[in-house]
């Protein structure tokens, strides 16, 4: 499951930020996962819990799914990820590599493949809450 690889990157990055910012006790880590990547929510959460090191023992993971939005660079139309219109193979390809959406999706108005993924692409750390060392 490549959810594990992404979870590992989250943990490693959180540890780096905690160190840089001098956070003593992390209480909450808010993570967003883009709808188009279709991560298996439970697998991803389980991976985070399993990989959680002692430095983050008090941290709660809040995982939210963010809606994927596209904007056509040619005609300006904005639209949402058309999950129901895509076959299983295409969804799986986009799950692994969201950018291949440019191979399968077109602007619904002008047909251009030149669009931006303006929101809800992959995995990102939205916020880390905790107590700072001097706090």
């Amino acid at each position: 499951m490549h959810e594990w690889a992404l979870a590992e990157s989250v943990i490693k990055t959180v540890l780096r930020i905690v160190d840089e910012k001098g956070i003593r006790k992390v209480t909450e880590i808010k993570i967003k996962i883009g709808e188009m990547q279709q991560l298996e929510y439970e697998v991803f959460r389980e991976a985070l819990v399993q990989l959680k090191p002692v430095e983050l023992k008090d941290a709660e993971f809040i995982i939210e799914v963010a809606e994927t939005e596209f904007k056509c660079r040619t005609c300006g139309l904005k639209w949402l990820f058309p999950k129901k219109e895509l076959g299983e193979d295409v969804l799986e390809a986009i799950h692994f590599l969201p950018e291949v959406s440019h191979a399968y999706l077109k602007c619904p108005r002008c047909g251009s493949p030149d669009f931006e993924i303006t929101g809800g692409r992959g995995v990102w750390i939205e916020s880390i809450s905790g107590v700072e060392k001097n706090g």
Partner: peptide
């Protein structure tokens, strides 16, 4: 493996 040989136009940020 993922594009299946279809044209995949990518701008810099997508690359």
């Amino acid at each position: 493996y993922y594009s299946g040989g279809r044209a995949t136009p990518l701008r810099g940020i997508d690359f």
